[in-house]
Computed example of a mutant assay.
Amino acid sequence: MSDETKKSTKKIVIFASGSGTNAENIINYFQNSKNIEVVAVLSNRRSAGALKKAHHLNVRPLLFDKEALYYSHEVLNVLRDIDPDLIVLAGFLWLMPTSILEEFPEKIINIHPALLPKYGGKGMYGERVHKAVIENNEKKSGITIHYVNPVYDEGQVIFQETVLIEENETPESLAAKIHQLEYKHFPEVIQQLLEDKK
């Protein structure tokens, strides 16, 4: 790969805490792209499926702990070395430290499985969100992709897509619908953001 090609290739770093289905989907989406590449997947959990999926897909997997993220700047230094064009939080459950937010302004995005500002905040993730949505008799739910700021789920909204909630909806059936929205739209929004960054 020439230096010119390297320079023009947009780099994505993914943070994930869980099974890594969104991370895997994003990696696969850009696998054949000539100018966008997922270069690393970082996780705070040794057992995270995201790290295994990254390894299988030939993307650098990196495990870190609270010390490395919040106190020693180890994660910040890794990110400085990579110099990503976009940092994508895909089911990452820790708050991003101010040091990283300041180093990469408008370059960190997150996906949330509800229509923010409703059903966001600390502890609101996965099935907890879907359960709350159904218990409150909402007629619709969806996904929100937003920029990350120092408060959980309060950054500027980039994109939302909705799905209707059926009468007999369960948290599991709603989760399945939300996953489909995530798989379809998250890579497309990432691509759009990177293509807009000249």
Score class of each variant (00 low, 15 high):
Lys122His: 07
Lys139Leu: 12
Ala50His: 10
Lys118Val: 02
Tyr152Glu: 06
Ser99Ile: 13
Val39Gly: 13
His146Leu: 07
Lys122Pro: 00
Asn28Trp: 02
Asn77Asp: 13
Val38Trp: 06
Asn168Met: 09
Lys140Gly: 03
His179Asp: 00
Thr98Pro: 04
Asn25Ala: 15
Glu37Val: 07
Val163Ile: 15
Thr5Phe: 12
His185Ile: 02
Leu51Gln: 12
Ile145Ser: 07
Asn149Phe: 09
Glu161Leu: 00
Thr170Phe: 06
Leu95Ile: 08
Ala40Asp: 08
Leu164Pro: 03
Asp85Asn: 10
Val39Asp: 10
Pro97Phe: 12
Glu37Tyr: 01
Val13Ile: 11
Lys140Ile: 11
Leu93Asp: 00
Ser19Pro: 00
Pro171Trp: 04
Leu51Ser: 06
Asn110Leu: 06
Tyr152Thr: 08
Leu63Gln: 08
Lys7Arg: 15
Glu67Asp: 10
Lys122Thr: 08
Glu67Pro: 01
Val78Gln: 13
Asp85Cys: 03
Asn35Val: 12
Leu62Ser: 05
Ile27Trp: 02
Lys184Trp: 02
Asn77Cys: 08
Ile165Phe: 05
Pro187Trp: 15
Lys53Trp: 11
Gln160Pro: 07
Val163Cys: 14
Ser72Gln: 10
Asn137Phe: 07
Asp83Val: 02
Phe104Tyr: 15
Met124Gly: 02
Tyr70Trp: 07
Glu166Trp: 00
Leu89Asn: 03
Tyr125Asn: 05
Lys122Gly: 00
His185Glu: 04
Glu169Ile: 10
Pro117Gln: 14
Ile82Asp: 04
Ile82Pro: 07
Val189Ser: 02
Ser33Leu: 12
Tyr183Thr: 03
Asn58Val: 05
Leu116His: 07
Glu195Met: 06
Arg60His: 06
Glu127Leu: 14
Ala68Pro: 01
Tyr70Ser: 09
